[in-house]
């Protein structure tokens, strides 16, 4: 008596193997779709920007005339924004992380703050824009200036810095802390002289990633009301400003009226993507070069 019909077994096996191969191919193709879209997107933007990125474009003032328009003001605005966001998120983010990791007892307050930070990370950016509009722009009567834009953006990216700093602080091994206590150092001395220096690479990586999120965000700034055409260059925290993504936004929606605006938008996108690429590369270099493994 035969328990296994050889022929049946063979055909079934072949079919199962075949299905597995087909599925593997499908999974691979699905993974490739992302790559294909990325290539098309970058190719499209690049070809549209050819001939538009020149010295005059980088250093000129905004203009309604496409040939004369430059993005120097938006570049300055983006730099100003980073100058506000970087220190604020660094102090607030690292402070919160130190408190949560080193001081807070694992209990109700700790998990409340932690859950709250996780939830904040999921709030749509436009809602932060409304918060900024209500509190900074209208409540404190600041208007759509660098300070209010920077504060709004800081609150938006704060969770990124907190979480990255927490991970960096957590990865500092316990024996370093104990060695420091063993030498007679106090808690704060241990944190400021041992834990923080050891976690600086992780913290910096987090801050850079947060900054690259901040300079690419548009929605909160649209909501706080940055106008389409700002001619003077900003030179203090209280000046009105515009940033690269805002310029992309206005040129894109107006490209239905003036075709060349699409080229200006593409050229600005190239500059923005280059800036993001540089920042992310720096983050990767810091992560690979300075991150010690204990």
């Amino acid at each position: 008596m035969k328990y296994v019909d050889d022929k049946k077994f063979q055909t079934r096996m072949t079919i199962r193997m075949l299905i597995n191969k087909i599925a593997k191919l499908m999974f691979f193709l699905a993974t490739i779709i992302g790559l294909v879209v990325l290539v098309i997107l970058i190719y499209r933007v690049y070809t549209q920007s050819i001939g538009w990125i020149d010295w005059q474009f980088l250093t000129g003032k905004l203009s309604t005339k496409a040939e004369k328009a430059g993005i120097f003001g938006a570049l300055l605005g983006t730099l100003w924004l980073m100058a506000v966001v970087a220190p604020i998120t660094m102090i607030l983010g690292v402070g919160t992380a130190i408190y949560l990791e080193e001081y807070a007892k694992k209990g109700r307050i700790h998990s409340f703050i932690q859950t709250n930070i996780n939830n904040l990370a999921g709030v749509p950016s436009i809602v932060f824009g409304i918060l900024g509009l209500t509190i900074f722009v209208r409540g404190l009567h600041l208007g759509a200036i660098i300070l209010s834009g920077g504060l709004t953006m800081s609150l938006l990216v704060l969770p990124i810095v907190v979480v990255a700093s927490q991970e960096a602080i957590r990865s500092v091994p316990q024996f370093l802390r104990e060695a420091s206590y063993g030498m007679g150092a106090t808690k704060w001395q241990t944190i400021s002289k041992v834990v923080l220096p050891a976690s600086i690479p992780g913290i910096l990586t987090g801050v850079i990633l947060a900054l690259s999120r901040a300079i690419g965000e548009t929605a909160p700034l649209v909501v706080i009301g940055i106008p389409a055409l700002i001619l003077p260059f900003p030179d203090s925290l209280l000046d009105k400003f515009t940033v690269l993504p805002m310029q992309i936004y206005y040129w894109t929606i107006d490209s239905a009226l003036v075709d060349e605006y699409a080229n200006l938008a593409a050229a600005t996108i190239v500059i923005l993507l280059l800036a993001l690429f540089v920042m992310n590369s720096i983050a990767v270099i810091i992560r690979n070069k300075f991150q010690k493994r204990y």
Binding site: G34, V37, Q48, A219, I248, A265
Partner: peptide, 24 residues
């Protein structure tokens, strides 16, 4: 090779996707 490409895709600002949707 593939994971960093996905990370790049995730890091592109949404305004760029908006431009891509509208003009392409």
């Amino acid at each position: 090779v593939l994971k960093p490409i996905l990370e790049v895709l995730a890091g592109i600002p949404t305004i760029v996707y908006g431009f891509f949707a509208f003009t392409f």
